[in-house]
Design a protein around this nucleic acid. Structure first.
Lengths: 349, 349
DNA sequence: GTGAAAGCGCTAACAT
DNA sequence: ATGTTAGCGCTTTCAC
């Protein structure tokens, strides 16, 4: 019975088969595979030729079993619609590949209670470390503490734990909030409103702190009547601005803690007949791609998101390969991008 | 020397250890682990207690080696900045977890020539199938053909191969382009411009086909002078509109093949003193989150991106678990979302 | 330089 | 209902 030869002799191509065809022991094949020096040049070449001819692929599973290394990292995220974390992941992935690691993806996507289960499954698969690319909003972090207790390397981006000393990579949100607010103040605005992200986020508190500092620098006090809370979404920015307008308080400028809420707020302002920037100057945060092309183009704080992911991954790999070598926080700075949504306060106002 | 006990007695917790402490054979432990029926209730319970007490975690690597199953899928993508594919991935991940699979992430992010290498590394790690969540723009697809030849299950989203019969999940771009254009025509527009995505993309050709069909239905001819090419980016939409305006051809409506280019084009129109929608109606494609909040809110085609990812994953898993069960294309329909960027043609024009 | 033997953690196949 | 033996594909150890 002759079958097409590729399909018929379906013996798996293992190290054994290579050894047999090259007339050496499996051990020698293994040596060639791992670029060990103690192989005779002719032997090495012969083995390599056989590997080539058979299209041999070493079985990474088997290698992992004996070496207890998987060169695999776990990536825990919460929401793929969040541009910030998506960019972090993009940066992380590129960096991981540079060091010959792969990421296993775990996205809890609106089921945060699944996280412990994800962690269990990932550790069963022997990921060598875990990158948290999600906000720190869950109250229950026992599973993460357990992970740390077990000695699994963990690095987080923009994720803090109350009691634990984590390796965290983040942007300097205090500085960013201060830069954005300062920019508005420099244009002569005295009444600067703020739409914040949801309570509980570290970044929200920090950006608000920066806002407060900038006001203080200018000799102004924080007026709670000018502050509204959103949930980062376009819609919440829109609603927050409606709420602010309903309060009938005076303001000539707005600092929105992210671009989406800024754009939503601009929509509400425009519907209310208030022009941006002539009547109200608006500064956002993130510099999402649309920021330069919406109407008007948005002045905002650009965050080095991909760098954040890359740096976090580098630290994680370092923690794996040189245990105990790192610890603590790293903060990257954001950068003010001036566009058309901010201008000098109207003297007539 | 007394060390904290968690660190000292660092014997790995394996099936052997559990067997020893429960005074059974490893085989019995294995049976309990795999929920086999042939274990005495008391034995089962005793084993489970020991597992619990020792906090035993089965080693997925070892299980994979013997079962040659990894419950791991490969995910190949190209660009995390692309909202479409990001959403596909989000949907895919959720679906994978439902079936107890994980994805290994491979993002070629502006290095398409790395793809063969990625594929090699993924197959070495014995992923059981691969999902391509990236556009089909590379001319060289030998590595993918090889994959198919090797019998690795592959499903793609919006990715076609000239000669191969792939399992493809996609949106019906002809229908979408037709819906968008038809909407503009229904408002009475006769001169409908189009900004396309880059040549070579299947979706570009299909959306253009839909545009042509709608015009034909209305008894109108396609005018190449009204068509400009972009590259999907905001900036390219902006530039394309500048180019179109420079041609000094008359048009009262625009179909942009994605929302980003539509928004870029609106920016150019607004800078040129042409109001949207009063002077020019604009329809986009994708319904990205900002579409409802930019100025003016965008009429567009909503695509079921997450569903696409989920469906592709379901088909992939099916192909793995029941080989030979599927083949061919599945097309999901998009849906027209009417907002403010389109209106009836100005009679005075 | 090369090979034989043992074992990584688990399960399939056969015993009892 | 439970245990014994063998083996998944590879590497480590120790011979020669």
């Amino acid at each position: 019975m002759t079958v097409s030869r590729d399909k018929s002799a379906r013996e798996k191509i293992t190290i054994k088969r290579v050894a047999r065809e090259a007339a050496v022991s499996t051990q020698t094949v293994s040596r060639v595979l791992n670029d060990r020096p103690d192989v005779a040049p002719e032997t090495r070449q012969r083995v390599q030729e056989v590997m080539e001819r058979l299209n041999y692929q070493p079985n990474a599973i088997a290698r992992s079993l004996v070496s207890s290394r998987t060169r695999t990292l776990g990536l825990l995220t919460a929401d793929f619609s969040d541009y910030f974390f998506t960019q972090v992941i993009a940066g992380a992935e590129v960096e991981a590949r540079k060091h010959d690691y792969f990421f296993m993806l775990g996205s809890t996507e609106r089921n945060p209670q699944d996280e412990p289960e994800y962690l269990r499954l990932l550790t069963e698969r022997h990921v060598e470390g875990i990158l948290f690319a999600r906000p720190s909003t869950e109250p229950d972090n026992r599973h993460l503490s357990k992970l740390l207790g077990d000695g699994v390397p963990v690095v987080t981006t923009a994720y803090y734990l109350p009691d634990e000393t984590l390796t965290v990579v983040d942007v300097d949100n205090v500085d960013g909030g201060q830069q954005a607010t300062r920019c508005l103040l420099e244009y002569g605005h005295q009444r600067v409103a703020m739409i914040t992200g949801p309570t509980g986020w570290r970044s929200v508190k920090d950006r608000a702190k920066g806002y407060g500092r900038a006001l203080e620098e200018a000799g102004l006090a924080v007026d709670p009547g000018l502050i509204v809370e959103g949930d980062w979404s376009y819609e919440s920015g829109y609603q927050a601005m409606l709420a602010l307008l309903a309060r009938r308080v005076a303001f000539t400028a707005l600092f929105a803690q992210n671009d989406r809420m800024a754009i939503g707020a601009i929509r509400a302002l425009s519907e209310a007949g208030r022009r941006v920037p002539q009547d109200v100057s608006v500064a956002g945060y993130d510099d999402i791609p649309v920021a330069g092309y919406c109407t008007p183009p948005l002045t905002t704080i650009r965050q080095p998101m991909q760098e954040l992911g890359a740096l976090a991954t580098r630290l994680l790999i370092q923690a794996i390969e040189k245990p105990g070598s790192i610890r603590g926080e790293v903060l990257l700075k954001g950068e003010l991008v001036r566009r058309d949504s901010c201008t000098v306060v109207d003297a007539a106002e």
